[in-house]
Design a protein around this nucleic acid. Sequence first.
DNA 1: GAAATTGTGTAAAACGTTTTACTAAATTTA
DNA 2: TAAATTTAGTAAAACGTTTTACACAATTTC
Lengths: 334, 334
Amino acid sequence: MSVTIKDVAREAGVSIATVSKILNRIPGISETTTRRVEEVMNRLDYAPNSRAASLARKSSRCIAFLAKLDESEPYTNPHLFDIMCGVQEALYAKGYSFMLIDVLQADVERMILSRSFDGIIVHGGALTKPIYQLLIGRKFPHIVIGHPSGTRINWVDTDNSLGGRIAYEHLLECGCVNTAFLGALETDDISNERLAGFMSAARENGYECRKEWIVHTDGSLQAGREAAVSLLTGGKRPQAVICSSNLLAYAFSLAAFKLSVHIPDDVQLITFDRYPYSPLIEPEPTLVQIDVRDMGRAAAKQLLHELKKPDLRVQSFTTLPSLIIGRSTKILPA
Amino acid sequence: MSVTIKDVAREAGVSIATVSKILNRIPGISETTTRRVEEVMNRLDYAPNSRAASLARKSSRCIAFLAKLDESEPYTNPHLFDIMCGVQEALYAKGYSFMLIDVLQADVERMILSRSFDGIIVHGGALTKPIYQLLIGRKFPHIVIGHPSGTRINWVDTDNSLGGRIAYEHLLECGCVNTAFLGALETDDISNERLAGFMSAARENGYECRKEWIVHTDGSLQAGREAAVSLLTGGKRPQAVICSSNLLAYAFSLAAFKLSVHIPDDVQLITFDRYPYSPLIEPEPTLVQIDVRDMGRAAAKQLLHELKKPDLRVQSFTTLPSLIIGRSTKILPA
DNA sequence: GAAATTGTGTAAAACGTTTTACTAAATTTA
DNA sequence: TAAATTTAGTAAAACGTTTTACACAATTTC
């Protein structure tokens, strides 16, 4: 059939242990033997059988990524794919493979028992209570992407609060003192963290945001437009608005256009995330960018690290958002 | 450590062969023995070690999905994630796992040699020449999603030409005889197939589309708007327009709004695909829906089928688009 | 009633690695 | 120079299944 370690050993006139040691870069084999064996491996087009290696080594070098893959997900959470790419990239770079599983479908417990993978990366949206208990109960190596409130579990997330602060501080540089916040539901953690960051930065600068300028919506286009209209027409108009999602920013830009309110001359706009809707916003918006791909990479690295030297403490950390300046804000000349 | 088939066999007072046969539903074991063994398996929380099973069975029950995962991809091809979900779903349902790999990163040949997976599903955008030659040369089980022109390889794709026909025929029902086509680059296969389907359906109905009503753009928002403006203002105005992507349809709807051309009263609009931009189009557009998730499922099923009974012939087939009627077209009263 | 068949189950050989414990030769140390 | 150490490599035992060939009893056939 296909060429095995035995064939290589025979052809090179050494034992299979020697070949294995060369494959795994285990010291103790001379330079000359190594070269001879490697030549044979190349000549025979040999690659070690990963299934056999997995069994012998008691590790599949495979990490599962658990997410909610139902129909609605790709567009309600456009970052999911990008996160996966980051995870995949970092895993491959370390010799691990990436297995995708669906929390709605998979019997995760059985997969853990059957040792299908060495660890699991859970997308926040897929962290159900049974999954949480399973990981904690079995002490199975894991990391969650997205901060799961009220749990003691390893996680990585972006610093949304810092994002809110960055947005506010940029607007200050643009001369905006009176800033509004257009957010999602009051139960939306991400939106709330961004708001909290903005508020605390504002407070440090001696500014208290008016109550009526903090607007919660259901995050939809329609609700965003309505909220934008009332922000722009009701009483005093804010100098700037921070939108907690790029759909809301898009909604805001539409409303502004219809009301002939010019961005950035009449009101400045800053939003979060580039995709999917920022490319449609006119003018090209200034935004706080969350590098979710990098977050995926960070999660993967952390999990592999944990696999190498297990640590009983709960590990968690954040990645940093960055500011991308577009034309919806205008820095004051110095 | 963890419980193995030996533990189950000992506890149940049978041989490991018996347990294995029960696990794999191989006939020849009595009802009573089966029940006894299954009770023990449950009691001990046993799940067969998938790594050992893979080795013994010479099959990993794992399929690779090969795609181009660079930064630009998720939004230039918003379907990729959805396709993956479909593939994952169908694979899991048949007891296979889903491994994601990146064509820009992975050494696919080495992975094949090391028998990391039993077959591969290639996203059209990742079918490079080396990959093509590798799969054909090694006769490795595969299927490509998206019709790769000029190759002899197994593939599944949606019937874009039929999509163009469906769009045209719907517009006929809406009383539109003079229909324009707003497409992407002349080198874009998908756009061209949709155009060809439209044209041939039109011809069958005795209508030849004016040359100036077939517009090729680079597919961008800006180009779409410009093309839309010239369609709407230059000479005779078409009764309807078919847009080959939902970004172009969005561009068209913006242009129409700015020119105070009302959809569907002044011009009717039909587009392809729902995401990501259709939800932003006003009014809610009539569209030809490509169920890409289903295409993923179909690809997975076909590959597993091929794995069971290899067939030397090249296999290829299409999935059907469907029409979703919105408010950008208006069926004539009967 | 002997021979053939059927129904249940087993022993043991794969599968192709990794890893442990060991050996023999070469080198260093005392 | 004998003893200790280092270097380079090996033999064989895992790893936990699947699968093949076979055994033995119970049943059926002639």
